[in-house]
Computed example of a mutant assay.
Amino acid sequence: MRAALLVLFCLASPSFGQGTAEAAAEAARRLEAAAAAMDRAEGASDRIAALTETVRAYEDGLSLMREGLRRAAVERARIEAELAADREEIARLLGVLQAIGTAEGPALLLHPSGPLGTIRAGMLLADVTPGLQAEAEALRRRLQALAEIEAIQQGAEATLREGLASAQAARAELAAAAADRTALPRRYTEDPVATALLIASSDTLEAFAAGLGQTIEEELGPAPAPAEPAGNLPLPVRGRILRHPGEADAAGVVRPGLVIATEPRALVTTPVTATLRFRGPLLDYGTVVLLEPAPGTLFLFAGLAQAFGEAGEVLPAGAPVGLMGGETPDADAILSGSLPGGTASGGAGLTETLYLEVRDAEGPVDPVLWFALEGRGSP
């Protein structure tokens, strides 16, 4: 795998910059780490933790690799556009170079007006030749860069396909392992009838959150140590913040939480030890996970396709709580640069959205009090 990925070091040419080469090296390292983690997960005592590490490693490595390929595709398009725009000039340049290269030596030394004309022609040729050489060298560099990019895309294809397939397998294994999870401590069990009645009678998230305590059937164990709002928690998913609290969406809807754009099938984890209070479909939020990191405080994650766990379980920090929806783009779409959800600053493929809201007994709380929002989670 590493040998195939190292072709991305061609990006270290001056036209791309050293940063892309470093990203390529990091992508190779992350994908190698993911493959090793997948092997370790087969015999790990904590299989869920090992598979979570595997999925994260694949997400990191594939994200870096996609960014390198995106830059390559942008550079290729730029060079091809330049060559197309300069087609006539390049044709004239090649014609002149061909004429000079095929002309016989003695003919270049004679001029119809005699020795003086020959001298003047020679002086003109001496002035023109360096310019022609510079233009020819610039053309050679552009063609060489184009050939390097083509080699990058061809060399990365097999590794990219392998990485995508392995990531999908790791997610499937993680979902299966989470469904069979029995070792987690529990605070209580859920009363399914009370939960169903609460959902049916709630027309807002506020109403559901206020009545959530009624769904507890019995207390089984102590609560985990309560977390404190220090503003340093990682976001629960890799992605890019689309909207902050109070910002209206395209339909004019304003919500008090964060909207995070993610890649399809991205892994969602709990940022801190918390009790799982609820998982399932809720109102117009889609599949919802409610975590309680401290008494009276709730983290709401909405928009998942799959959610793991049972109400009452105490989840350690970093434990998987679900997967985002959508279809993972295939290698052809990534290699061709035709991923949906792209922006001018990159981020192609961020087609899913996770809604994150923090609530306490008084209502919504600014997520910045709990989460580190600057420089986090960008793919």
Rank of each mutant, 00 (worst) to 15 (best):
S15Y: 14
Q18E: 11
G19H: 09
A25Y: 14
R30A: 14
R40E: 12
S45I: 05
E53A: 15
E53M: 11
A57D: 13
G68I: 09
L69T: 11
R76H: 04
E80S: 01
A85S: 08
A85N: 01
L97K: 04
A99Q: 14
I100A: 14
E104S: 12
L109H: 04
P115T: 06
G122D: 03
G122P: 03
G122V: 01
G122Y: 01
M123R: 02
L125N: 07
D127E: 12
P130S: 01
R141L: 07
E150K: 06
E150H: 01
A151W: 03
A156F: 07
E157I: 07
A169I: 01
A170L: 12
S201N: 13
A207N: 05
A209R: 13
G213F: 01
G213V: 01
T215Y: 03
A230G: 11
N232M: 01
L235H: 14
G246N: 09
G252E: 00
R279M: 00
G280S: 02
G286E: 04
G286C: 07
P295Q: 03
A302Q: 11
A305W: 14
G312F: 13
G322A: 00
D330T: 14
A333L: 11
P340L: 05
S345D: 14
G347P: 08
L369A: 15
F371K: 13
G375C: 09
G377E: 15
